[in-house]
Nucleic acid binder design. Structure first.
Lengths: 228, 228
DNA sequence: GCGCGACATTAGTCTTGACGAACGTCACAA
DNA sequence: TTGTGACGTTCGTCAAGACTAATGTCGCGC
């Protein structure tokens, strides 16, 4: 089959993000994610189905085929390597590299990607804590919980920061608060009634609504001091 | 005006390359350079003329306006910075960076370009010896001669290697022969009748036809030892 | 069982950037 | 003066990828 166009790659990536476990994704979800009209999605899904990259049962959503998933993971890999490069080598800010990587992932040749990867010593994680698939597309599974789902007294380590906010404003905010991969967090208090979280992040207090934590994924610590 | 599309940028760059002194460029020359049909060129020139980037007198060729030239130089700047980056930072081969830079020049943001430029300490020349325009688009003028135009006994320093050969095969060949920017060359013999050039490149003998030197630009040395 | 609303799909259009075919235009030669 | 050929331009078309408007289809409530 032909090389994929940029749009095709974007659809595959979105399908992967919305249905990573091979679950079906609704046309409208895709349309929303890609900021595109539903008819455009239907049209593109037909094309991708013709290329055996997705399975598209009319009115039952779409799911990636094995080939489609492989392609999607390859794009994710490129994205994460590029983000890591932009931060580690070019010194750009953590919060503002997403859009650049989003563009470059479609236009960088394998040769250049490999050179970048080599230069950095084949990193395993990007600056936001996401795991970088290896060349074969393997991705070590990892069970993380949303920080907002923890109960009072819980302790956890921040592992991934997910954010699709344009301009990375929330990322910048989180960074200022110390909410970055590796940070240790203690949930001091959860007041459901007024939706307030009181955290201790690497020793500093941090108060926020649950909205403001959406996208911060942690690895809970199953330890003794739970009851506090 | 809107941001330029990739095609528009390519047309401007080609116009700049073919008529750097503001001279008019024929439709057919552009078509040939861009590997596109003449009607496509006419069409695009009309669009660029509407945006005041080129002046297009029907049947009299096209020339860049001041605005068009400024855009073209900006693209050339990006290209050269990227080539330098690919060689100096990523360690790619001199001969194989052209195509990658050709793509990336259209997709890298100002922010990333600036970071790359800064990382390298604002280089003045790219790996092939081309001068890199500064941010304002200024380009120090430089008078170079084709190596193939020198007479027997002439001495010169290689300054620029121009090559549009896909895959950079000639670049690789020249590099193996020592024909790189900075190399000192002496024309040992020119036999016009069978089109043979006998050179001494940094002390090594190198024999070639004039075709094989097309694109090697030198700065002749006006010195005493001319008559040899 | 019928209707209504949510959602998906079909149908037709637009824009960009390319193409080939056909038609001008112009300079030079006979 | 009139060809003739080179070159440029006009015109109609295509493909990708988006859109809007219109049309299906399904499931749920009554």
């Amino acid at each position: 089959m032909q090389a994929l166009t940029r749009s095709e790659q974007d659809y595959l990536k979105a399908l992967y993000a919305l249905g990573p476990e091979g679950g079906a994704v609704a046309t409208s979800r895709l349309a929303e994610r890609l900021a595109v009209s539903p008819p455009s999605v239907t049209h593109m899904l037909a094309k991708l189905a013709a290329g055996r990259l997705v399975a598209h049962a009319p009115r039952a959503g779409a799911r990636l085929t094995t080939r489609g998933r492989r392609q999607a993971i390859e794009i994710v890999r490129r994205h994460r390597i590029l983000e890591t490069f932009l931060v580690r080598v070019l010194g750009l800010d953590w919060a503002e590299v997403h859009e650049d990587a989003e563009v470059l992932e479609h236009h960088i040749s394998d040769r250049v990607l490999d050179a970048v990867d080599r230069l950095m010593g084949h990193p395993r994680e990007d600056p936001h804590g996401h795991l970088i698939p290896d060349r074969a597309g393997r991705l070590r599974p990892r069970a993380l919980a949303p920080l907002g789902s923890l109960a009072r007294g819980a302790r956890a380590t921040v592992r991934e920061i997910r954010d699709r906010d344009p301009g990375g404003r929330r990322l910048a905010h989180w960074k200022r608060s110390g909410l970055v991969p590796g940070a240790e967090v203690v949930v001091r208090d959860v007041r459901e009634i007024d939706d307030v979280f009181e955290l201790e992040v690497s020793g500093r207090r941090f108060v926020t609504g649950s909205e403001g934590l959406d996208g911060v994924m942690v690895e809970p610590r199953k330890e003794a001091g739970r009851g506090h």
